[in-house]
């Protein structure tokens, strides 16, 4: 049991990780399933507390499942507007923005080099 290892991370970071796990999942997840989906080591009670807090904030919904709840992310009703704005953001050249993007665009050469690097990294 190394449950408590990541408990001392800031609450905001833990909420972010739990939220990301819910969005990445296909359907509603129970606290136990969320705990298994996380790369950080958290006690199940902690996961439940975080999920309850997110539910209170209204960013996740929940439904009865067995004796507990299964949680799912709330899609904003005008999800379309978000998508449109995202498109708007994408149009500008990403070479010239002050937003620090995680990854820049790849050339086809880059793609080949990356795949080779990944393969050599797996060994």
């Amino acid at each position: 049991m190394n449950d408590a290892k990541d408990e001392r991370r800031p609450a905001g970071e833990l909420e972010a990780s739990v939220m990301a796990a819910l969005w990445a999942a296909d359907g509603p997840r129970t606290p136990g399933q969320v705990q298994a989906d996380l790369a950080v080591d958290l006690a199940r009670t902690t996961v439940t507390t975080i999920l309850t807090r997110l539910h209170d904030k209204g960013v996740v919904g929940r439904e009865r499942q067995g004796r507990g709840y299964a949680y799912f992310p709330v899609e904003d009703a005008p999800g379309l507007t978000a998508r449109r704005m995202h498109g708007e953001l994408n149009r500008g050249s990403d070479r010239e923005t002050v937003l620090a993007r995680f990854v820049a665009r790849l050339s086809s050469d880059d793609e080949r080099v990356l795949r080779e690097l990944l393969e050599s990294g797996e060994q």
């Binding site: 905001g12 972010a16 990301a20 997110l54 960013v59 978000a82 995202h86 708007e88 953001l89 993007r101």
Partner: peptide, 29 residues
């Protein structure tokens, strides 16, 4: 672009410092 990004972040679901935008295009900033 920054205004749009901020407006989008304010509208989308926020947990801690994370804003999730519901879009199939992989992107992060």
């Amino acid at each position: 672009a920054l205004r749009t990004a901020r407006r989008q972040a304010d509208r989308s679901g926020t947990a801690g410092d994370l804003c999730v935008v519901d879009s199939p295009l992989p992107d992060a900033y």
